[in-house]
């Protein structure tokens, strides 16, 4: 089934002389159970595309459909609910809440998403186990290594059982070995759950763990096998 449908999306920042065209007529389709790498240099528009798909930015023109939900015309409030319930984000850097433990950084989604808290807690414990963090669940982020923090971030993205996982440069703050570990783990979690995932990266070594790579340059998508 089609998980993500990006149809002819253009995003222009600013107006007149200062207008910047960050995305030009971008079209993309992703099925369930598919993990895609979005590869491009900085300033190529990959973050903009991720933001449009994740309901963080409205496109200037074009349509984005997630499952059977069209993002166009959503109010800010609806966008927020959409992100809380249907998208899992993994950010560049670690970006955990510094005063919550590893487990709490996941279970906090119980007060953000509409899923019942008991369900979130059960899933958090399962994810802590799968991500090898059970022993570290009561540690604060500052007591965790970089790799462990990024695994907690992956757990937080998955704990609401979203349709879609969006990953922004997950290896930016990690060395090659840890980065590879994290991406491999991410790929496993996405595939075993049958989710659709997009990972923005400029690191070619990471693409081997994905199903497909799409290059982006100056806001244009260049399909690649």
């Amino acid at each position: 089934m089609t998980a993500i449908n990006v149809d002819d999306v253009t995003k222009i920042y600013g107006e007149g002389h200062t207008a910047v065209r960050a995305l030009r007529d971008a079209s993309l389709e992703l099925r369930d159970n598919e993990f895609l790498a979005l590869l491009g240099p900085s300033g190529s528009g990959k973050t903009t595309l991720l933001s449009v798909i994740g309901g963080l930015l409205a496109p200037t023109s074009g349509r984005v459909t997630i499952g059977d939900t069209a993002l166009a015309g959503m109010s800010k409030k609806e966008q927020t609910r959409f992100r809380a319930n249907r998208v899992g984000f993994v950010f560049q850097g670690f970006n955990l809440v510094p005063f919550l433990t590893a487990r709490e950084n996941m279970t906090v989604m119980g007060s953000i998403s509409d899923a019942p808290r008991s369900e979130i807690e059960a899933r958090a414990d399962q994810l802590l186990d799968e991500l090898g963090l059970t022993d570290r669940k009561n540690n604060l982020p500052e007591q965790l290594s970089g790799g462990e923090r990024q695994r907690v971030a992956i757990g937080r993205a998955l704990v609401t059982d979203p349709d879609l996982i969006l990953v922004d440069e997950p290896t930016a703050s990690l060395d090659t070995e840890l980065g590879t570990q994290v991406v491999r783990l991410l790929a496993t979690e996405i595939k075993t759950r049958g989710k659709a995932g997009i990972m923005v990266t400029h690191d070619l070594r990471m693409v081997e763990y994905t199903d497909r790579t799409v290059r982006i340059l100056d806001g244009e998508l260049l399909d690649e096998a």
């Binding site: 927020t80 609910r81 992100r83 998208v87 937080r156």
Partner: peptide
């Protein structure tokens, strides 16, 4: 941190 929380769906 607040931007992250809003991105992941905090109203």
């Amino acid at each position: 941190q607040l931007a992250i929380l809003k991105a992941i769906g905090s109203s």
